[in-house]
Design a protein around this nucleic acid. Sequence first.
DNA 1: AATGAATGAGATTTCATTCAT
DNA 2: TATGAATGAAATCTCATTCAT
Lengths: 220, 220, 220, 220
Amino acid sequence: MSPQAPVRAGSSPSAPATARGVRTRAALVAAARTVFERDGFTDAKVTDIAAEAGCATGSFYTYFASKEEALSVVLYEAQREVLDPAANPPTNDEDPWDAITASHRAYFASYRRNARLMLLMEQVAAIDPEFREIRRRFGHTYAERTARTIAELQDRGLADPELDPFLAARALRAMVTRTAYYAYALGDTVGLDDDADLEALVRTTTRLWRNALQPTPYDR
Amino acid sequence: MSPQAPVRAGSSPSAPATARGVRTRAALVAAARTVFERDGFTDAKVTDIAAEAGCATGSFYTYFASKEEALSVVLYEAQREVLDPAANPPTNDEDPWDAITASHRAYFASYRRNARLMLLMEQVAAIDPEFREIRRRFGHTYAERTARTIAELQDRGLADPELDPFLAARALRAMVTRTAYYAYALGDTVGLDDDADLEALVRTTTRLWRNALQPTPYDR
Amino acid sequence: MSPQAPVRAGSSPSAPATARGVRTRAALVAAARTVFERDGFTDAKVTDIAAEAGCATGSFYTYFASKEEALSVVLYEAQREVLDPAANPPTNDEDPWDAITASHRAYFASYRRNARLMLLMEQVAAIDPEFREIRRRFGHTYAERTARTIAELQDRGLADPELDPFLAARALRAMVTRTAYYAYALGDTVGLDDDADLEALVRTTTRLWRNALQPTPYDR
Amino acid sequence: MSPQAPVRAGSSPSAPATARGVRTRAALVAAARTVFERDGFTDAKVTDIAAEAGCATGSFYTYFASKEEALSVVLYEAQREVLDPAANPPTNDEDPWDAITASHRAYFASYRRNARLMLLMEQVAAIDPEFREIRRRFGHTYAERTARTIAELQDRGLADPELDPFLAARALRAMVTRTAYYAYALGDTVGLDDDADLEALVRTTTRLWRNALQPTPYDR
DNA sequence: AATGAATGAGATTTCATTCAT
DNA sequence: TATGAATGAAATCTCATTCAT
């Protein structure tokens, strides 16, 4: 799933009523994220999560109905941390390429910070059809939104009229997300220092976007 | 992993010596693929695989040392079926864009045929670091190869000199593979008939490639 | 292994924290001993042990990481019950033969009480090289200790100077342990009542010890 | 079991009729001994035995009805190789101590040669009550025979009249067999060269026998 | 709320034995 | 006889979830 896909928050058996309860729940969510990221959902053991949170196994079920629900909560809480590439569509006011550059930078930075979580999401997407459907819908919605922008650019003669706006939008987003996957989830970095590496990614992907959309002098 | 990543073949306990053995082993490999694709590696039960193959549970272990090894064999055997985008690098003889078009078409067609398998690979990649490493290496090698072509085009003034050849190559490949994922693994199709849909993908991604690489009239 | 060989205590997954846990663990240890003695280590089923202890199969693994570990614990706990022949070396204060008599009596009595356990130990010794090494070391240490006493007696003219003290010590201990094996593990009793039988063993072995060590009037 | 305990020969499904059959059977028996000695009866796999014999698994069952039967045959065939301590009772013609010395030497030498087999026998004895009974009976018979000799010596004033002839006989034999076990099965050798070590065992045990039986000057 | 032991269904794997060729 | 694949009945061990305290 793309990082920002909205996940339904699991309905915990009961919201914590006491301050202590709030603390325990928070510890469990943090522990769950740690363990899920470390072991993957399938191999993660409820026992380990509780141990990591410093509480008894039974307490886990005070706050979550099941392991699945804990995952759901972890993913939900993580959403705010993870941004979408080009989540802020270009406005007319500023240079649209500056906006896209910033958006790509934010995305790569976020992916780098949350690489283990992204890997977890890939696993969940591979396991859970429901999650897959959420991801699909989210990607679709994003692409439709971007497609409108592209269509507009085409109308104004600023984008290659041959492109299918929707497919192009989806493909370009895919380019960014998968590039982040290769760089940060798989760790295929070029070997510069971390920030230079990130800037190179931003520069390259943004330029590819720009090139890809521009009206071409040749015809085909 | 990208479909074409080479997987080491698991070393079965022993190669079948009789025709009957060959048949049983083949049935088990086919059954394993079916069940892995249907249930995912983790949920797949050896019992189910044997049942699907029409033999006793124990026979599974005549040919595979473990469930992992069966997976390995399935993935290995699947390689020949799945091609890489732009696996055939353009030769000078023909129009390079024709070659890329053909390559993309082959890739999307293959991905469509093997969508469940691709999903399985995503799961394995999310679970198994070793598999991830294979995927990383393969992607790296591919990108290096393509990067050389791009650099050459740059030298001849036929490609945008601002682009980092390696990063561009990797990103463009990522665009294709992830587009296939959205379309066929997630099932986010546009709703045309299947072949038209595929052709639209081919057209769009190829044109994006072409645009993305071309030397731009503007400067930045 | 000879009954008294010290066995490393297996490190249980976790020591019980509650009274109930303590009870369950104790029940499992007792049950394990019963079943191991009845069926032998190899044939003993974890299921049976749990059933004997009156708890669920899974509970077995709350306290032992494996069947092996349970065996280890059983053997370790049994050590305190089983004594060594001549474990209490004669002191100068009392008649050394009285001390040896007492020691032999204690040993035979213990062996009689724990005959099934001894048989289990024989099985473990036959199976497990590590256990064998423990037994060997223990026997060696014992023999060295006794050898010193014998050497001293030789110096004082009270023991046959022709004897190798170490080999003699080991052989005499072997005589006692193996005699107990024949009588109680194999059940080759003479048919007197139990206590008279035991006393006859004590009397015979002690006298053989005494005779064997004494300086002989003949030479050879 | 003491090495020489007579084991019933298993009744093979059929005696080999052809020369080839004779060869295969012999290979299987040899292989079975090798594997049983190496892995113990319980862990020995029929597959391994067949492989060791260089024939197919199925062929094993051409000659043996079961794994147990193969064991039986191995043990039976081994009997001729393994002697009993003092199996040849002293005759009046020669010096009885010379005879016992020779007998002990033969026993230790045999035990040394067949140490793995002896270990196997210990395992079988620990596992199989029937085997235990054979061992018990054999030991009993031996002790009765020797007891008669001892009684006779007592009558002639050449042996300690206080000793129970049967118990003494059994104990002295136990001394020898268990000493061999410690030395060769457990490998607790003194560190001389092999032959010197063996001679020391012979000398010590024989002298202990002699001393142990002799009429003592003291009374008790 | 917290604790941590208890539960038990279920999965993988082993291997003696059978059997078709 | 020989072969080697097929069989399938266990047995060990896991772990999400429940529950008594």
